[in-house]
């Protein structure tokens, strides 16, 4: 049903650390790999080896440059996937009931059997988290790897979203935001986890950790004392030579 639950028992989601993300796109690839082979229609590509390739991705890494007033510009890599919003506008607009937010864990999912591919949910999402698959004609979105996190056929350490499992920089964290003592809740508190486009009132579950402030260092030049001129007034043979040459 497209009515949002008043509240969910758990609030599963991601914390993405913009300080440590190195922009390697490993999460993009592992996401595409897992979700092409598992839950729902595969994530298709069009003209993959041609001159105008495009395809469906549930997770994309943008890169931004931020220029502070006084210090040099910083490059910030910015992974973006579904934020599993508490007040998910994509769910309520769905005409068929294909989009829903689960009461038990807050994951926003698409039931592809009911999806008509009208694309209205993608219009309603401010974050570009939903993409209509061109081959299958149904809406695709991050499932928080719902087929991994509860999958008892996988070793326990693999029961987390593929993007989190693969991140070599440990910039992605998965957990339950409803539990104040969970890893993600603690990280959010400690690092000032933020919402994207908070002005739209979507109440995203996923939080982004802003880059830590750059420290500044006083200029220390250990060679400077050695390079200071030793003699202010020239003396001796070199002094005489200097003056003699000056007169020439």
């Amino acid at each position: 049903m497209t009515q949002l639950p008043a509240q969910t028992t758990r609030k599963l989601g991601l914390v993405i650390d913009l300080d440590t993300c190195v922009g390697c796109h490993a999460c993009v690839i592992s996401c595409k790999g897992w979700n092409t082979e598992n839950y729902g229609a595969p994530l298709s590509d069009q003209d993959a080896y041609g001159e105008d390739p495009s395809g469906t991705f549930l997770n994309r890494v943008h890169s931004f440059e931020v220029k502070p007033e006084a210090t040099p510009a910083q490059t910030i890599h910015f992974p973006k996937s579904c934020l599993h919003c508490d007040d998910a506008p994509c769910v309520t607009v769905c005409p068929t009931g294909a989009s829903y937010k689960r009461v038990e864990d807050g994951i926003v999912l698409v039931n592809e059997k009911d999806c008509i591919g009208c694309g209205l949910c993608a219009w309603a999402c401010p974050y570009g988290a939903r993409e209509l698959d061109k081959a299958a004609g149904v809406m695709k979105k991050c499932t928080l790897c719902v087929d991994r996190i509860y999958n008892e056929n996988l070793p326990e350490e693999d029961r987390e979203p593929a993007c989190v499992r693969t991140c070599p920089a440990n910039a992605r964290h998965f957990g339950d935001f409803a539990d104040p003592e969970s890893n993600v809740s603690k990280l959010t508190r400690a690092r000032g986890g933020m919402d994207l486009m908070p002005e739209l009132g979507t109440k995203p579950v996923n939080k982004y950790l802003p880059p830590r402030p750059k420290d500044t260092m006083d200029e220390i030049d250990i060679l400077a004392p050695l390079l200071a001129p030793v003699a202010t007034e020239t003396k001796g043979f070199l002094g005489w030579l200097d003056k003699a040459l000056e007169k020439l």
Partner: peptide
């Protein structure tokens, strides 16, 4: 506001 990075610059 989209990136939340406005505090930096």
């Amino acid at each position: 506001t989209a990136t939340g990075l406005g505090d930096i610059g």
